[in-house]
Nucleic acid binder design. Structure first.
Lengths: 343, 343
DNA sequence: AGGGCCTGGGCAAAATATGTCCCGCAATGC
DNA sequence: GCATTGCGGGACATATTTTGCCCAGGCCCT
């Protein structure tokens, strides 16, 4: 990589070229088939600039153009993959990762350049990376907890199926969260399990049950089995949310939401609410993973991007030093800004 | 280095930038202080192009400009050094080295980009590289033979003095060749020895002596000692010449020159003349290193550049498979061309 | 059947690169 | 000590490229 620094010195023009061409190639990859005009709209580039670059990339055999628009070629995909680390280097991602890891005092940090909120591509890249990390982390015999949410849905979506099957069990970490089927922990656990050739259990516990109803439901054998697995879970893959958005999304009573915010809740994860120091403020009434169990886990993978989640990430990071965090550049920079201002 | 191939694909403009800026930087390094106009003359670039690039390089802190002209900065020298392998890669030198080594069936080949005949800079670079190789090759106790010639003079000139002294002896490999003091084996041996903190012996045997005079002179103790050292020499560093040019330079009678050429002599080295197959055609009448001794040496470093020496290099390479050759790109390409045409 | 989006071509206007020449200055050679 | 040479930097008309925009013709999807 130090050859890149040399090029930065002796031919800095290259950096721009590399960056624009990388971005164009990536955008085509994620939006193909796409036309010159839509592309320049998405990227905010002038139509002509896109046109020139696209012509160039076509000459290099990295993309094809037909009447429908532009497609990336196999060669282009290979090139795009080789370019990821180069682009990261240009954006200073490696340094950012080291810094954030130290700041949050957690095991590992992976950062995707860009902002996953603005760009669905970044979210999808986060999902891709996470899926690689999951594959490297999971060993035979593991019981893997999963939560819901749109980020986790992206992970499941981008997960690349693996030939060699694993002898693991996927299980939702908590009961009844979410309405949208694709973003439910149940369906995410199922998708991941299928793509890995693993097994999974579901956990259906309706939201907001009263004590008696809950007790009644817990007599169900399936649910008992699932809860037993959760107690023995040794890997957790979960999304981190903002306390306020998650409270709203769950339709908590307004009074409750106000109280949470008054008490400084900024983060939500697996049904628990925390302030920025990592103190638990409240726990959503359902079954599943407890805070103590979470704190004792050795393999913990958190996924969360977008600067609005900065505080939430800071909060959750204090809970378990074994955590592996996958996030994006904008969240990372915001976190650093917040922590730097606090000191 | 494979990142360079990636850049060649995705931002080929870089290659030109790299090349022109490298060449400009190098030319300034070797000719400082130099002005914009002389620089463009040397390089054959338009004045304006040079001017733009020079401005750029100055902004990057790689060169300074004052009233006398342009100078390279320390930063510039460091950068230049880092750029050598990059430039080599661009020029395809590594591949060329591998190919030539196989073709000539010798131990090692080092190639400098360019043509040492056109550009004194290339010759000086050859000298630099050779001096590094010499340092790596020579071990304590070695007796190192040296020949004369302008190439060997460049080696001595560019040799970078070394702190840790070596316990070695430098000795001219042959008697009486050359007139110009700087290009005489005696003075080259002395220069190298001094720069390495080593010792040296001289060998003064006038050119073209008759048998009796020679026998008489050989009774001299100094000469006896030197010849004894030559017999025990275990390292040779030598230049390769064209048979015709060397014959002329030694003022051989015209009949002799014609005969040599008629017999197919193309190469001269340490006073011996060879045809392209490596058959000895004639030996110049003086004392010193014999052909058999040469063939038995384990450490042999040959230096020769310029396409006109291609045949000579081919010839000499057949004599000793332990040979390490330092040459330039134009000679290398010419050699490959000749050998390819011959098959 | 029609609206939308696609490519490739064309073209004038704007921006940049290019090729030259000049000037004042300091070092160098005679 | 004086003329000459070679230097950097400024200037500028001209050539070349880049830019921004629009159009025609065609396929796709609704």
């Amino acid at each position: 990589m130090e050859i890149l620094s040399l090029i930065e010195l002796i031919a800095p023009e290259t950096i721009n070229l590399l960056e624009t061409r990388y971005i164009i190639l990536r955008t085509i990859f994620y939006n193909q088939p796409i036309g010159r005009r839509s592309l320049s709209d998405i990227l905010g580039f002038k139509e002509r600039a896109v046109r020139d670059q696209v012509n160039f990339l076509r000459n290099q055999g990295l993309l094809k153009i037909d009447i429908m628009g532009m497609y990336i070629t196999d060669e282009g995909i290979k090139t795009l993959e080789s370019l990821h680390p180069v682009y990261n280097h240009i954006k200073g991602i490696p340094e950012l990762e080291v810094k954030l890891k130290k700041l949050l005092k957690i095991k590992e940090v992976y950062i995707l350049p860009g902002n996953s909120r603005d760009s669905g591509m970044v979210l999808r890249d986060m999902g891709k990376i996470t899926s690689k990390i999951i594959k490297n982390t999971i060993k035979n015999g593991d019981i893997v907890g999963i939560t819901g949410g749109s980020t986790m849905a992206a992970v499941a979506e981008e997960f690349i199926p693996d030939k060699n099957k694993r002898d693991v069990i996927f299980i939702p970490a908590r009961g009844g969260l979410g309405r949208n089927v694709e973003t439910q922990a149940n369906s995410i656990a199922a998708t991941l399990a299928k793509k890995l050739g693993a097994t999974y259990r579901l956990l259906f516990v309706p939201d907001g049950l009263e004590k008696e109803a809950l007790e009644y439901i817990l007599k169900n054998e399936d649910i008992k089995e699932s809860l037993n697995l959760i107690d023995n879970m040794n890997v957790l893959i979960f999304g981190i949310g903002r306390a306020d958005t998650m409270a709203e999304r769950r339709n908590l009573p307004e009074a409750r939401v106000r109280e949470l915010i008054k008490n400084g809740a900024v983060a939500e994860a697996f049904g628990h609410y925390f302030d920025i120091k990592g103190n638990e403020i409240w726990e959503y009434k359902t079954v599943g993973l407890s805070l103590n169990k979470f704190k004792s886990l050795k393999k913990v993978i958190a996924v969360a991007g977008g600067e609005e989640k900065a505080e939430a990430i800071i909060s959750i990071s204090t809970l378990n030093e074994n955590m592996i965090l996958i996030t994006d550049e904008s969240a990372a920079r915001k976190i650093i800004e917040i922590v730097d201002n606090a000191t």
